[in-house]
Write a protein that binds this DNA or RNA. Sequence first.
DNA 1: TGTACATCAGTGAACGCGCGTTCACTGATGTAC
DNA 2: TGTACATCAGTGAACGCGCGTTCACTGATGTAC
Lengths: 208, 208
Amino acid sequence: MSSPPEKEAPVRAPGRYHHGDLRAALMAASEAILLERGVEGFTLREAARRAGVSPAAPAHHFGDARGLLTALAVQGFETLGAYLRAGEAQGGSDPARRLKEQGLAYVRFALDHPARFDLMFRRARLNAQDPALVETSQAAFSVLQEGVAAIPGAGSPERASIRALAAWSTVHGFARLALDGEFDRFAGEVGLHAFTERLLPMILEGPG
Amino acid sequence: MSSPPEKEAPVRAPGRYHHGDLRAALMAASEAILLERGVEGFTLREAARRAGVSPAAPAHHFGDARGLLTALAVQGFETLGAYLRAGEAQGGSDPARRLKEQGLAYVRFALDHPARFDLMFRRARLNAQDPALVETSQAAFSVLQEGVAAIPGAGSPERASIRALAAWSTVHGFARLALDGEFDRFAGEVGLHAFTERLLPMILEGPG
DNA sequence: TGTACATCAGTGAACGCGCGTTCACTGATGTAC
DNA sequence: TGTACATCAGTGAACGCGCGTTCACTGATGTAC
C-alpha cells in the first residue's frame, strides 16, 4: 500500500508577475528540501529559490521560516490522521485487529513521509501554539485513543489512556529507530519497508 | 535515582599557554551547548569560546565539528550501557523483573541526559562509521538483547531478537515522545519524571 | 461598461551576522644523547 | 645534568559563504460606484 498522490506544486506561468499559487509551491519545495537535506538543511532562501521567487516573497504567505514549517507540520498531522483512519477501516470489525492495523498505518506513514514525520515532532522549529497544529495533532491522537477504547478488555478510561500511550510509544519508537537507521543492520538486503511489514505485525501481536 | 556526578571540565590555569585538558573541556562545553540550544544550536566556535580557546584549537583534538560530536555520542552510549547494567542489577534474580528495570533505566537515561540522548541518534551529524561509536552502541544493545534472552519463555533466538526490538521500540518511543514534549499535556503539574515513574512500569508490565 | 483606487503579491538590493576551516606562526613540552 | 631538537598544542587573522530579514518599490488584481 502506498500513499495517495500528492498534489503538484503549481509552476508559475512564464512571464507572469504573480505566481498563482506560491503558497503551495513553497510547501512542495520545502518538503523536497527536507527530504534531501533533513530539517537541519532547510532554509527559507532555498525554498524561495526552488519556487522561482525572490527571497522576500515567502514572507507574504508565511510570515517567516517558522510559519512555513508549521504549515507543513499541520499538513503532516492531517495526512497522519487519514492514514490512521484508513488503516482502521482495513481492520474490519474486530476492534483488536482494527487497532493493530492502525499501528501499522502509523509506521507506514512515517516511512512514506520521513521528512514530514521528522518535522512534526521538532517543536523547536515550529510554532507550538499554532491553533491548527494543536488541533490536527490532537485529532490524530484521538483516533488512536478511540481505537484503544473500543477494545472490550480496555478497562477503565485511565487504563485505556495508558494503553494508548503504550501503543503510541511502541509504534513511534519503531518508526524513529527505523528512520534513524538503527534497523539497517537487521533489515539488511530486504529493505526497511519489507523488514517492517514482516516484524511489526508480530510486535503488535503481543499487547493487542 | 539520579545520574553519577559528571567530571568537571578542567579550566585553564590563568596565564598558561597550554590548556591542560582541552579535550575534556571542549566536550563539557559542547554538552552544555546541546542542553541549552539543542543539536541544531551547536557550533564549534561556541564550544571553543566556552573553553576559552581560539576557534582553531579544537581541530587539534577532534579534527572537525563532526569529530567532537561523535566523541560525545560515544560517551553517551557508554553511559547508557552503564545505566542498563545498573538497572538490570536492581532487578534482582527474576529475569522478567531485570528486563523491566532495564527498560526503566533506558528512559531514565534519556530524561537525565536529554542532550546526549538526542545526539546519539542523529547519525547525520556523526561519523556513523567511527569504530568506537559502532562498538559502544552495539554493546548497549547487547545488554538489552541478553536481558530478553534470559527470560524462560523467550522462544527461539529469532523470536527473542524480535522481542528485543519490540522492547527497544517501546522505551525509545516513550523517551522520545517525553523529550519532544508530547506528554506535557498529560504530565501536567507532576512533571515528566514523576509521570514516567508512574506510567512506564505499567506499560512495561504487559509484554514483560 | 468604465474607471479610480485600495489592496495584494511580488522585486531586488542591502543589512549585519556567525559560521567552519585554513594558514603561517609561536610558545611549551618532553625526549635522546 | 645539560642541551639540541622534534613534536605538540596553542594563536589570531583571514577566507568565502549563505543565512533571515528589512526596505522602499512596483506590477497586477479586483472591487465600489
